[in-house]
Design a protein around this nucleic acid. Sequence first.
DNA 1: AAATCGGGGAC
DNA 2: GTCCCAGATTT
Length: 363
Amino acid sequence: MTTTTLDTPSAKPLLDWYDRHHRDLPWRVSPGMAACGVHADPYRVWLSEVMLQQTTVQAVKPYFEKFLQRWPEVTDLAAAENDEVMAAWAGLGYYARARNLKKCAEVVAKEHGAVFPDTEEGLKSLPGIGDYTAAAVAAIAFNRQAAVMDGNVERVISRLYAIEAPLPGAKPLMKEKVALMTPAARPGDFAQAMMDLGATICTPKRPACSLCPFRGTCQALKLSDPELFPVKAAKKEKPVRHGAAFIAVTAEGEILLRRRGESGLLGGMTEVPTTAWTSRLDGETSVTAAPFDAAWQASGTVTHVFTHFELRLSIWRAAIARALDTNDGWWEPVTNLEAQALPTVMKKAIAAAIPLAFKTSRA
DNA sequence: AAATCGGGGAC
DNA sequence: GTCCCAGATTT
């Protein structure tokens, strides 16, 4: 329940703040351009927003530049090979985003004449575009008065109105508040301003309230403590899973790789052979589960934290004379690993067995 | 409504 | 270690 009946604050102070303090990001056009009828390219906005889902601006920047240079328009991405897209996405995480990105590009290219829908409803019907991304693209690229709400906006709104109801249940209430605040003029700048505010001023810890354009109206600042908002439901503890990974290398410098299934964890990505990842540390995590008979040598343990569990992989290494026939998978030159769709956990596993497998930035 | 789905930076 | 990041999809 809400503890306040704050009147809807004006968007004006926030837009004024944004005009002075906005961050210059690769997918943005300068603020105020919207007032002149110039908006960011829908393809770039969409690409950036999908990459930014649950991902920091800093992590996205190099991937955005790489994708835009390699696939400058949606038709280029639609025509790309799936494996190339997955390899380019490797390391960014949440790989269903990459699969849906490719599907979405194909739908836009083939069914919409390479033109993105310009409404929230039309955008949301596309793969990988949900409530947030549909509203963001509609507002930023098409100047639609759409209510954009991400984690930053949730935090700003929860503090501005001192909303005590916990997330995620309070989300509809918060979205009502955002919708009432969103202006007909410059809705895209307003959305980006709210997100910039949450990222730079209204931060989770130690917010810089003295610099905030809403410091005069924020109910949490006035009546309580902004750091206490938003209220969130308690989270579960992460279980630990165990497994073994096998790095086989031939005398010619080839490593055995496999393709993971198309759905689920790390779906469609490349891996080294591993056992199943189980809750118990037992025989399945040992060398007895190796893909073939060889002089397997223990090469330490790799720990990797996923969203909902922690994985501890026992690493086994074998040097063999030549490539063996295998039921699934292929032998890839170690010198070509950079071009593979290897998620971070698999790069860690390979690096544990072959320290020089990946170039380090160290001189 | 709850679970699934990566990785990394800030603290 | 904890938190959380311009969330979407499936169950």
